[in-house]
């Protein structure tokens, strides 16, 4: 498959602070590619470089096979970018904002009339179409901003945390819409702190401290991870958690809502589980091996790198 984005060895510094340290990345034509990593990992910097909004300090970047440092005007006319804090016109109504952006992106009237109902179906903003954007709730503003960004269908969409503050139902509907936009031929690069969204991407790149830790399909990332996850459920979760945390053979013990997830080295799992079952007999926790999710893997990667290079705070 052809690459729509090719990033080779780029570095970026703000003053003496390194935001990106030799990053390389490929996004294939037609895929939904997820960028995940903690804040300040460099995701936004990378996206801004791809859009030609930041100068390239070293390395090479091409989008649509065009060199970003030379052809950024042409590139920008063919991609859509939604920054983390997208500003709407607060004094315009919901509908006026949508029409404004449709005109800005030169969307034909016919296309626009076809898209508005789709966008309203996801955002549920139709009943509020004459309300001033400034009077919307936080998540409604975010959904309107998203709708404005999706009113055109460029070859490539770059979305920086599009689901910030969006409720669970709308997030599901938003991802269905992304999939249908993808079917229409648009490639999508999207950053997100939601690991359930990372699962929905064709490929995912995990960034930490300006470096790529992994870049592959969720299935392969999971297959290459040599650890196993056990789910623990117990009515005595509060008492159980601190006890489990103390056991050094357990790599990590994390809360996942009303469950705990234990991460174990694959080859030690059987003996550790055995040991736990005798030891916690009285609490009778339910232990069950489960398929690892992206959130398990994300937390495990973070723990491993921070163990090596503790991050300096403040």
């Amino acid at each position: 498959m052809q690459d729509i984005i090719q990033v080779r060895d780029i570095m970026h510094q703000y003053g003496d602070k390194t935001a990106l340290e030799k990053i390389s990345l490929q996004v294939s034509q037609g895929e939904i590619h997820g960028l995940i990593g903690p804040d300040s990992a460099g995701k936004t910097t990378l996206m801004r470089i791809l859009c030609g909004l930041l100068n390239i300090q070293s390395g090479t970047v091409s989008v649509f096979d065009l060199d970003v440092s030379k052809k950024f005007k042409e590139i920008r006319s063919r991609l859509g970018y939604m920054p983390q804090r997208f500003s709407l016109y607060q004094d315009l109504s919901v509908e006026e904002n949508l029409l404004f952006f449709a005109r800005l992106f030169s969307v034909t009237v016919q296309e626009r009339n076809q898209r508005l109902p789709e966008l309203y179906a996801f955002s549920r903003l139709e009943q509020f179409k004459s309300r001033r954007a400034g009077a919307l709730s936080g998540g409604m503003k975010q959904k309107l901003a998203l709708s404005c960004a999706l009113v055109h269908r460029p070859e490539l969409l770059i979305l920086d945390e599009p689901t910030y503050g969006v409720d669970p139902v709308s997030r599901q509907e938003f991802w269905q819409m992304l999939k249908s936009i993808q079917k229409g031929g648009t490639s999508i690069l999207v950053s997100t702190p939601y690991m359930d969204e990372a699962e929905l991407c064709d490929r995912v790149t995990l960034i930490y401290n300006g470096k790529v830790l992994a870049s592959d399909t969720p299935t392969k990332i999971k297959a290459n991870w040599n650890k196993v996850v056990f789910r623990v459920t117990s009515p005595e979760m509060k008492e159980l958690e601190p006890e489990l945390v103390k056991i050094i053979e357990i790599e990590s013990c994390q809360r996942f809502g009303n469950e705990l997830h234990l991460v174990l080295q694959a080859d030690e799992a059987a003996s550790i589980i055995n040991q736990l079952e005798t030891r916690f007999d009285e609490y009778m926790p339910m232990l069950e091996q489960i398929q690892p999710g992206m959130e398990d893997i994300y937390l495990s990667y973070m723990q491993a790198v921070q163990h090596k290079e503790p991050s300096h705070a403040g």
Binding site: D39, Q84, E161, Y164, P193, E295, Y298
Partner: peptide, 16 residues
């Protein structure tokens, strides 16, 4: 009010 919106899984756990 939405203290953890946009916050990654590890930082959310620390905040809780």
């Amino acid at each position: 009010d939405e203290p953890t919106s946009g916050v990654d899984p590890q930082a959310r756990r620390a905040f809780w």
